[in-house]
Every structure is written in C-alpha cells, then in structure tokens.
Computed example of a mutant assay.
Amino acid sequence: MPIAVPPPWRTVVISPHFDDAALSLAGLLPTLPGPLAVVTVHGGSPAPGLPVSGWDALCGFSSPVEAYRARRAEDARSCELLGAEQVLVDHPDGPYVGEGDEPAGLDPLLRSLAPGTRVLVPLATNQPDHEAVRLRTRRVLAAAGAPEPWVYADLPYT
C-alpha cells in the first residue's frame, strides 16, 4: 500500500541489520542533510517459539525475541545519538525467515520518498542479506525513476 504523504527525510540510510548503519557510518551520519532516517530492513520480530540461532546463542541470548528486543533498543539509542529517526521494516533477520523470503516491506517506503531524497545502501561484497537489500533497493528506486543510491562500505564485511 502506498504511503499517502512522503516522509520528510532528506537522507535515508538503508541498513540491512540493526548495527550496520551505526558501525559503518557513525562518523558520516551527523554531516548529512536532515531530517535523516535509518531504515533497518531486517527490523521485524521473529515468530514466537523458534529456536535461538547459533549466533544469538553465542551472544548470550536464550531466545530469538530476547535478542531482537535487545538489538532493537540498542539501535534506537544509536539512532538517537546520531540524530536519525529509527524506521523498522517488519521483516525478521535471516535465521528466522523462510528460504527465499524477501523483504518486500521495504518497497512501499522506497517508492514514497520525495524526489531528491539521498539514499545510501551497503556495498555488500560478501554478505548475502546485505547484497539482497542493495539489489532490491536499486531495483525499486530505478523503477520509480529515482537517482542511483550512494553506496557505503558496510563494516566489518567490506
């Protein structure tokens, strides 16, 4: 469903996961034209009852929902410190979605951006979630006639 009023953002950072924008762009974000939004594509809660992923267990979490809540709160705080609005796409992280499940919730947001909005996407050289987000963002923006996004080095992968 299209968004009735375009968001007021002048800069939008597409962050595949909660930590990607802060880890990769913390020094740059405060210098970009605002209002600014960090859009976390894998920002949705995992379904209840799923087993904890190996990564989340290694980080000390006992459930996917516990990991999600902690990471969402950490992301909210980093967005606050960086002067960005936190925007979450309702799509769970990779270990908690089905094979081939694409983050289609990003599409209406991208199509609703005002002309001239600067969009930043990850380079995504060796992380499949990041590559899928970059390719989808570029495809939707191109179909909308928007300019090519800026590409950032997504740390620590690039």
Rank of each mutant, 00 (worst) to 15 (best):
P46C: 08
R136N: 08
D90N: 15
Y96Q: 07
S78E: 14
P48H: 05
S24I: 03
P30C: 09
A146C: 12
A26I: 07
R138E: 15
R134F: 01
G34A: 09
R72C: 13
N126Q: 13
Q86D: 05
P30Y: 08
V65G: 09
A142C: 04
V140P: 06
P108S: 09
R72K: 15
P149H: 05
R139T: 14
V121L: 09
L50W: 02
V87H: 03
E74S: 10
A47I: 02
G44M: 11
T40N: 05
P92A: 13
D129A: 11
D90Q: 14
L88G: 12
P48R: 13
P108N: 11
R136E: 04
R77G: 01
P149Q: 07
A132W: 04
A84W: 02
L82E: 02
A142P: 00
V89I: 15
L58A: 15
Q127N: 15
W150N: 00
V89K: 06
L81W: 09
V140C: 11
E66W: 05
A84T: 14
S45I: 11
S63I: 01
G34T: 07
L82W: 10
L123K: 07
V121M: 01
V65Q: 14
R136K: 13
L32S: 05
V97H: 10
E80H: 14
H42A: 15
T117I: 12
A104N: 08
S62M: 03
R71C: 02
R72S: 12
E102T: 06
S45A: 15
E74C: 02
D90V: 09
F61N: 03
G98R: 14
A142W: 08
S112P: 10
A104C: 00
E74H: 09
W150C: 11
A37G: 10
S24A: 08
A76I: 00
P46A: 04
V41S: 06
G116H: 05
T117Q: 06
L110Y: 09
E131D: 11
A132R: 15
P46G: 09
A142H: 12
D101Y: 12
P48L: 07
D107Y: 01
A37N: 08
A70S: 12
V97M: 06
V121A: 11
C59E: 15
P48V: 04
E99L: 12
V41T: 08
A73K: 10
C59V: 00
P115H: 05
W150Q: 12
D56M: 03
E80K: 10
V140L: 11
A144E: 14
L113C: 07
T40S: 11
H130S: 04
L110N: 10
Q127T: 05
T31L: 14
L58V: 00
G43A: 10
